[in-house]
Simulated scan of single mutants.
Amino acid sequence: MAIVNVTDQSFKNEVEGTGTVLVDFWAPWCGPCKMIAPVLEELDKEVDSLKIAKVNVDDNPESASRFGVMSIPTLIVFKDGQPVDKVVGFQSKDALKSVVSRHQ
Rank of each mutant, 00 (worst) to 15 (best):
G89Y: 01
K93P: 10
I76S: 13
V55S: 12
D58F: 02
A37Q: 09
V69F: 06
D94L: 14
K86Y: 01
V100T: 14
E62Q: 07
G68M: 02
E41K: 15
P83Y: 02
G89T: 00
K93A: 07
V88D: 06
V6L: 07
G19R: 06
D24E: 11
D85C: 08
H103S: 11
F25Y: 07
V69T: 03
V77F: 03
V6N: 09
I3E: 04
L50T: 06
G31L: 08
A53Y: 06
A27M: 11
A27V: 14
V69W: 03
F67V: 11
L96F: 11
V57T: 08
I36M: 08
P38I: 04
V21E: 00
C30E: 03
V99E: 13
V100E: 15
V15M: 12
S49I: 04
L40M: 09
I3W: 04
T18R: 14
Q104K: 11
L22V: 00
A95F: 09
E46I: 10
D48Y: 00
L22F: 01
P38G: 08
P38R: 09
M1N: 12
V47R: 03
M70T: 00
V87I: 00
D59E: 15
V88Q: 06
G17R: 10
P38Q: 07
F78P: 07
V39P: 15
K12S: 15
R66T: 01
V21D: 02
M35H: 12
H103E: 13
W26E: 05
L43A: 04
R66D: 03
L40F: 08
F78V: 00
S63Y: 06
V99M: 13
P32V: 01
E42N: 12
G31W: 05
N56C: 01
V15N: 10
H103P: 13
A2C: 00
E46C: 12
Q91L: 06
E42Q: 15
A2P: 15
S10G: 10
T7V: 08
D59A: 15
V4G: 06
D85M: 06
T20H: 14
V88F: 04
S98T: 15
L75N: 00
G89K: 00
N56E: 04
V47A: 08
C33G: 09
L75T: 02
T20W: 15
K54W: 05
P38L: 07
D80I: 03
D80R: 02
V77H: 00
S98F: 12
V99N: 13
G17N: 14
S10W: 05
P61H: 02
S98M: 13
S98G: 11
E42W: 05
C33W: 08
V15C: 12
T7C: 11
V39D: 14
T20D: 15
L50E: 01
D24Q: 10
T74F: 00
K34I: 00
A2H: 05
K97V: 07
K97W: 01
K51A: 07
N5L: 13
Q9P: 11
D58P: 07
V77K: 03
Q82S: 10
M35P: 12
K54A: 10
P83W: 08
F11Y: 13
K79Y: 10
V55I: 14
S101T: 04
S92C: 05
P28D: 06
V15R: 08
L43V: 01
D8E: 14
T74D: 03
S98V: 09
A64G: 07
